[in-house]
Write a protein that binds this DNA or RNA. Sequence first.
DNA 1: TGAACATATGCCAATATAACCAAATGTTGT
DNA 2: ACAACATTTGGTTATATTGGCATATGTTCA
Lengths: 107, 107
Amino acid sequence: MMTKKDKLMCEAKAKVLKALAHPTRLWMAEQLADGERCVCEFANMVDADFSTISKHLTVLKQAGIVEYDKRGKQVFYRLKVPCVLKFMSCVEAVIKSEVKEQAALIE
Amino acid sequence: MMTKKDKLMCEAKAKVLKALAHPTRLWMAEQLADGERCVCEFANMVDADFSTISKHLTVLKQAGIVEYDKRGKQVFYRLKVPCVLKFMSCVEAVIKSEVKEQAALIE
DNA sequence: TGAACATATGCCAATATAACCAAATGTTGT
DNA sequence: ACAACATTTGGTTATATTGGCATATGTTCA
């Protein structure tokens, strides 16, 4: 049975996953594995409006994945819970498994 | 720079994450850690329309997270890449970190 | 063959997300 | 105080997701 407690817990977890479940946000989170970045750096690296990038970072912030630091005019974001990226090797395994199957179908 | 290749890769990964980023789907995936389940079992465990459950399972299937097996009238789903659940301990760490911070604010 | 059952699919309405532009906020240096 | 800059916020529109209902498909058993 999916209890009320289960539901609440899964909603909380889903929120975190959802935050990472966007190509741009995921990419930015991965970049932060190398250390903090300011919003302006992302603006140069990603092809999207400045405000769009800012909003994506806000989503990551609200999910508890990143934290930030205002220094002067700039805002620096960094990973708060770096383990989120360790998961990516598994996600890649899922993708590889799919690709393999599709390749097998073509044969 | 977020290259075209980066983008494609992140889109693929995001698709997998997105599939898990729904409370009901996440819960169902977690249940499958204990072994396969048929759709009818989920129907008894989750408070949602049968068709809704079926659709959620289809999303997990298309993301490559689960696979199924038709046996008689029933369809059994099981985890295809079990490591996806290992990530949950990290997701829980994110949540705990948030809860702690909020608790600290109240003090 | 036909009834009973398990699951999937199509359609639709409600809601959530994403992106851009324009405008607001906050900071630094003059 | 003002101009220049970095970032956030609000408004709007386009698109995607979700969930339920009704319907279709496929299987078993009599």
